[in-house]
């Protein structure tokens, strides 16, 4: 018993030590006489990013919601935007040409599309590194041979791979559209409040980008920049939406299949759980007390 009491005494001592230490940290943080209190919470003056960064706007897509499906035409248009615009600087390294079958391309079209792209290869006679026309099994080639080249060609800012972009950002699909359509002049109010936050030369103001100044110049700058074979509108917003849809597919090609598998699984489980409930009730009926009649 003596021993047990001493365990509790030690525990109280340790508990007080940790609690008082952390409260000491709290008091020191607040400062003598609460002099630092103004720095806490809502009293803090927001910095330029907190004040002007915008969360993505919402755009409607065919694949939204638990029963949404791809709009194959839109994905094909998005592929075209990627191919004609984005691919100049951004790789798409996890997507193979063969995957385009899911966008409704025929084997012949895929072969032709792949062959239009030069992929890294080896010269059969000399063994030297070279490029060869792509095959359906090849992956989308990177525009740069390595990261240093990418850095050198882009003013030290490496264009990220786009394969997973819509999963690598919060609300990724909407983020891509918002970012592509969000280029603008720095608001006068921003410059008034944060004169030192003027966008440096070589960068571009975009409130949807985390630190407001993005190295990428507006990639979609002119209505009709890309001509769509299906005659769909090709204003900047439409092109941005199409490429965002395409990048949603590249990031999660199994999105629709996943949901289509999910419905029967969940419905079956609800049904089976119902049976399990009835069976449990049946088993327990024998011993469950009933309310007195």
């Amino acid at each position: 018993m003596r021993q047990l009491i001493s365990i509790r005494v030690v525990a109280v001592a340790i508990g007080l030590f940790f609690a008082l230490s952390v409260l000491w940290a709290l008091v020191r943080g607040i400062g003598p006489g609460f002099s630092n209190l103004a720095e806490y919470g809502q009293f803090t003056e927001p910095n330029v990013e907190q004040a002007f960064h915008k969360h993505p706007n919402h755009y409607d897509f065919s694949f939204d919601g638990p029963v949404g499906n791809w709009d194959v035409g839109q994905l094909q248009r998005g592929l075209k935007v990627y191919d004609e615009v984005c691919s100049a600087c951004h790789s798409l390294k996890f997507v193979a040409f063969r995957d385009l079958a899911e966008l409704g391309l025929t084997p012949g079209q895929i072969k032709a599309f792949a062959a239009k792209h030069q992929v890294p290869g080896v010269d059969k006679n000399t063994g030297e590194a070279t490029t060869v026309p792509g095959l359906p099994t090849d992956y989308f080639p990177s525009p740069y041979p390595n990261e240093i080249a990418a850095r050198a060609a882009n003013n030290n800012a490496v264009p990220p791979d786009l394969s997973l972009m819509t999963k690598a950002r919060h609300d990724g699909t909407n983020y891509v559209v918002s970012l592509l359509t969000g280029y603008q002049k720095q608001p006068a109010e921003l410059l008034k409040r944060f004169p030192e936050a003027k966008t440096p030369p070589g960068l571009h103001y975009n409130p949807y980008f985390a630190n407001l100044n993005i190295a990428m110049p507006p990639p979609l700058h002119t209505d009709g920049q890309v001509t769509f074979d299906d005659g769909a509108p090709s204003d900047i917003k439409s092109m941005a939406e199409d490429v965002a849809a395409f990048l949603t597919w590249t990031a999660e090609p199994k999105l629709v299949k996943r949901r289509q598998t999910g419905w029967p699984v969940v419905i079956f489980l609800i049904f089976a759980t119902g049976l399990a409930y009835m069976s449990k009730q049946q088993v327990w009926a024998a011993v469950k007390p009933k309310k007195a009649a």
Partner: peptide
């Protein structure tokens, strides 16, 4: 989190 941490230790040990 400082307030919560203080209570967390106090709860179990005191």
């Amino acid at each position: 989190s400082q307030i919560a941490t203080a209570y967390y230790f106090l709860h179990f040990l005191v």
